[in-house]
């Protein structure tokens, strides 16, 4: 079964690409989780939809080189809007996030339906961004996905220490001369990049699961940040492979939702048996005391 999957050249590309996309998401997701910004990722992923639609409307092609910049722009714009609303009104963070998320998403749906009703027949496949379609990854797009994911992974490893410092203790980081604001921006750009490339695999609605859930699960296994990062990537990879295998075996099954269900199951398992914070381990610890 697995051998035949690997023998299929198309499936192989899908697997390699999905693994890479989801590793990038897991890495940067750990930092958004540690900074208690789990749900801003959700806002970004929903806000990518209008960007994709606008890019398509203006160019008329589904070329990734056109669509990704569009997605990146509206994704980033959503974060700026949230920050602007928070700074200039009495609205609280959760309201601002939900507001920006839903309005951007609505604009995206409006544009998509416009394209559908007025399109030139070239538009089919655009809505695969909604719930993701890993199988629709084209081998022509692989180099671009690959390089973006590589940039994200490499940057997180390279900037690990400043990222860790500003996530743990921002004012200390400032006091030793780290430009926390600048690094924060770098981190935001990386997370938007990771989300933009990730939506092809799991879609805008479920993308935030690829960021948060592995981080939450990994935290239950270790108290060390490097280990947490490694485990998060590992968990996302396991879930991706499982999701792809399931949808390869039953072609009517959607890949993205299965990946999400798999990573959630790993998380639930971790809540109980994780050896750092898992609830079963914790109760045995208290007995020892």
């Amino acid at each position: 079964m697995v051998e035949s999957l690997w023998a299929d050249a198309n499936a192989r590309t899908v697997i390699v690409c999905t693994l890479l996309l989801n590793s990038a998401a897991a890495l940067i997701g750990c930092f958004t989780y540690l900074q208690k910004k789990s749900l801003t990722g959700d806002a970004v992923s929903h806000s990518i939809l209008p960007g994709i639609a606008i890019a398509f409307l203006f160019s008329g092609v589904k070329d990734l080189w056109v669509i990704l910049p569009g997605a990146f722009l509206t994704g980033g714009l959503s974060l700026l809007s949230i920050e602007y609303i928070l700074r200039h009104s009495k609205l609280k963070q959760d309201t601002a996030i939900a507001l920006v998320l839903s309005v951007f998403f609505a604009v995206g749906v409006v544009l998509l339906s416009y394209i559908q009703h007025h399109g030139n027949g070239n538009q089919s496949g655009l809505d695969s961004f909604l719930l993701g379609k890993a199988a629709a990854l084209l081998s022509a797009d692989i180099p671009l996905y690959f390089s973006v994911a590589f940039v994200v992974v490499f940057s997180v490893l390279l900037f690990y220490r400043p990222f860790m410092l500003i996530s743990f203790d921002r004012s200390f980081a400032l006091s030793i001369g780290i430009a926390a604001h600048r690094w924060q921006q770098v981190m935001v750009v990386l997370s938007v990049l990771a989300i933009v490339i990730g939506i092809q695999a799991v879609g805008v609605v479920l993308m935030s699961a690829m960021l948060i859930t592995p981080a939450v699960a990994a935290r239950y296994w270790s108290h060390r940040l490097p280990v947490v990062l490694l485990l998060a990537v590992l968990f996302n990879m396991i879930a991706s492979v499982m999701g792809i295998i399931i949808s390869y075996k039953y072609p009517s099954m959607p890949t993205g939702p299965w990946i999400v269900v798999c990573i959630s199951s790993i998380a639930v398992l971790s809540f109980f048996i994780g050896n750092a914070k898992g609830i079963l381990r914790r109760s045995s610890l208290t007995v020892q005391k």
Binding site: L39, G41, A209, I212, V216, V260, S264
Partner: peptide, 16 residues
């Protein structure tokens, strides 16, 4: 994070 984990799981389950 709890919100994010729970709703993505349930929504994915619904789509499946």
């Amino acid at each position: 994070a709890a919100i994010g984990v729970v709703f993505t799981f349930l929504f994915a389950l619904g789509v499946i």
